[in-house]
């Protein structure tokens, strides 16, 4: 019984690992495409690709980081905060994400203070 369960777990791991790797590869391509269009100032399209990447691989911090930047550029500050926080949740020690989030918070906090 134990051996059967062990074999099943092993098979599942073997089956899932390439799937996860494929998802990351696909998401990376989508993120890369998004970066290319963002550099051409096509931010809405960039957001589309990064949203797709985040859906393809929900553990890919770069997709959420870039989404945070895209939303910030579009003035959607609530969504930007959520995206940065998700990115930091996935990679809490990533200095780039931390830096982006700090800069975002500085603007957002200033705006909220002015609105009070």
């Amino acid at each position: 019984m134990f051996i059967r369960a062990l074999v099943a777990a092993l098979l599942l791991t073997v089956a899932v690992t390439p799937l996860a790797a494929d998802a990351r590869e696909d998401a990376k391509k989508q993120v890369e495409f998004g970066i290319g269009v963002a550099q051409k100032n096509l931010w809405r399209e960039a957001i589309f690709w990064w949203e797709r990447a985040a859906k393809t691989d929900p553990t890919y911090a770069a997709a959420y980081n870039n989404l945070g930047i895209g939303y910030e550029h579009e003035g959607d500050l609530d969504k930007a905060r959520a995206a940065y926080e998700k990115a930091l949740e996935l990679e809490p020690d990533n200095t780039y994400i931390k830096q982006n989030y700090e800069l975002f918070k500085e603007i957002n906090d200033r705006t909220s203070r002015q609105n009070q």
Binding site: K28, I97, I107
Partner: peptide, 20 residues
Amino acid sequence: PNFLSTLSSTKVKGTRILLQ
């Protein structure tokens, strides 16, 4: 700048890091 931002939309310029 704060006074004007009450009456009209403004844009704050900055740089961010995109990751891949």
